[in-house]
């Protein structure tokens, strides 16, 4: 069970209240009508799935119903930081 800090409610809550919405910082193609199938497929289907530091989006489903980002280590499950949508992570993978 993860203990997750919601940056909107400003307190720690249990994982049961949240839903993980996958990798964060995926930019939608700016001109979807003119991007190639490869670009569109990359955007829709392909994710990094790293071992180690990952930035992911979480949704506080039963609480404030806001999305926010979490930097988490996929090996240890340790949450390194929590930051709001639109902000940039401070903890990033090396290399």
């Amino acid at each position: 069970m993860l203990h997750i800090y919601c940056p909107h409610c400003e307190e720690l809550r249990e994982e049961e209240e949240f839903h993980c919405s996958g990798e964060a910082h995926i930019a939608r193609p700016l001109d979807p009508d003119n991007c190639t199938d490869a670009e569109w497929g990359e955007y829709i289907f392909f994710r990094k799935n790293p071992r180690g530091i990952q930035h992911e989006m979480w949704y506080h489903t039963t609480g404030c119903r806001k999305f926010f980002n979490v930097t988490r280590d996929t090996q240890t499950y340790e949450i390194k930081e929590v930051y709001k949508i639109g902000e940039q992570p401070k903890v990033v993978a090396e290399g």
Binding site: R13, E16, E17, G63, R65
Partner: peptide, 8 residues
């Protein structure tokens, strides 16, 4: 008293 929280 006065606190509000949505939860399961």
């Amino acid at each position: 008293v006065g606190k509000v929280a949505g939860s399961v």
